[in-house]
């Protein structure tokens, strides 16, 4: 289990300051949801955690060690789409992670080893509700099933951190509710640390243990990129109520108006 410590993090692209002076400490097993207007840097923050972007200044520490600056098996990811491999069927998609480990040269396993991996994969697939679809290709699955598959793929590697980038953004409301239930159950069973981006503030209020709102503290209408965003609200989810919801919504829409003016 890993704790994450972020100290005075800045992320800049040339003159464009995306994140400024961001400090955060996350204990192992927390379920953190990230919300904010589009372009507020929450996706950049997730990319930093994933290791596909590097910090400009500051530190991200994982158990007091600097974070590895490329993606690896400690951090699982589920994107909004394209998370599964179209040329592999459902069970092969899930087996892939284990096969990479079992054979560095070919990334394929054979015989008994393969059978064992397959059985593990099927077990995980049953857990996420895809037990009946193991021979299908991803393109034959509905949107919700594809996201279930993406979660199953990540789970087989037992990552300590699971990153979710608007995983349910493209799904119907009914299916989204099912997926919330699934991800909460999985989180309780596995004690994973989860970071989830959502554009739906209510989703953030409902899921997880902690809600982070990304926004700009200062704003220069003439130079919108002069100041970066940081965490403006950091609320334990049990303390969320309608007043807070209104407050955050208000603060975010005010900024938006300023920006458009």
């Amino acid at each position: 289990m890993k704790t994450i410590e972020i100290k005075h993090l800045w992320k800049e692209y040339g003159d464009n300051i995306v994140l400024e002076d961001l400090n955060l400490s996350v204990k192992a097993g927390e379920f953190v949801t990230l919300v904010g207007t589009s372009g507020c840097g929450k996706t950049t923050f997730l990319k930093l955690l994933l290791g596909i972007e590097t910090v400009t200044r500051g530190k991200i520490l994982l158990d007091d060690e600097p974070l590895v600056d490329e993606p690896d098996a400690t951090r699982g990811i589920v994107f909004q789409r394209y998370s599964s491999f179209p040329h592999l069927n459902v069970v092969e998609n899930v087996m892939l992670g284990e096969e990479f480990e079992s054979s560095p040269l070919f990334g394929r396993s054979f015989g008994k080893k393969r059978q064992a991996i397959r059985e593990r994969a099927i077990k995980i697939l049953k857990r996420v509700g895809l037990g009946d679809a193991i021979d299908k290709y991803p393109s034959e699955l509905s949107g919700g099933m594809q996201q279930r598959l993406a979660i199953a793929q990540a789970l087989i590697k037992n990552p300590s951190i699971l990153l979710l980038d608007e995983p349910f953004g493209a799904l119907d409301p009914g299916i989204r509710a099912d997926m919330h239930e699934l991800i909460l159950d999985i989180w309780k069973e596995t004690k994973l640390t989860i970071f989830m981006i959502t554009h739906d503030l209510k989703e953030g209020f409902h899921l997880g243990t902690r809600l982070l709102v990304f926004d700009k503290r200062r704003h220069d209408p003439d130079q919108p990129n002069r100041y970066g965003a940081t965490i403006t609200y950091d609320i334990p989810v049990e303390k969320t109520d309608n007043e807070t919801l209104d407050e955050i919504t208000g603060s975010m829409s005010n900024k938006k108006q300023e920006a458009t003016l």
């Binding site: 490329e70 993606p71 990811i77 990540a154």
Partner: peptide, 22 residues
């Protein structure tokens, strides 16, 4: 899609495995 390449890496793939299996 870049997502696939990143996903493979989070599943523990090295460069060669990304080439051969993805």
């Amino acid at each position: 899609p870049e997502e696939q390449i990143i996903k493979a890496q989070t599943l523990g793939a090295n460069s060669w495995q990304v080439i051969t299996r993805v």
